[in-house]
Amino acid sequence: MSESFEPVIVGFLCNWCSYRAADLAGTARIHYAPNMRPIRVMCSARVEPQFVIKALREGADGVMIAGCHPGECHYVDGNIKALRRYELLKRMLRQWGVEEERVQLVWAAASEGIVLAAAVDRMTEELRALGPLRWGETVISGNGHEQALEEAPAAEEA
């Protein structure tokens, strides 16, 4: 499996910018890795941490959250809310031993099909290098947690 490992990425795309960026990538026939499986949300602020965790738990190797550029959100500042939530989520995933590359926040304007396509390609490459997530071993059995503690003993949490 490791030789031909193809990661599966769940993508949460906001309706206004990143979904349209992906539409544009299609219309412009920009080829990119077919590894991302997109789900439409109205705004990146709608993405709850539990959706991300659910996706990882159910077998995704990574999750991409894509929104409009800061300052360009269709809903004023939903993407900033997404960013705040993402930072907290990342901290939690780190403690569980889930590598940072597995959950990524991407900004892509409706005109940036090429940006979104490149982000999917890049993330796919990174996850290919990391290998499968193995949620059961990493998180459920706590191996990842122990490893995270070993790597950063100072960051021990109560």
Partner: peptide, 17 residues
């Protein structure tokens, strides 16, 4: 949304979980 997440992962779902 959660059903959709589960749906798109139909082929890689972790049976033991």
């Amino acid at each position: 949304l959660i059903s959709q997440v589960v749906g798109v992962l139909w082929d890689v779902r972790q049976p033991e979980l």
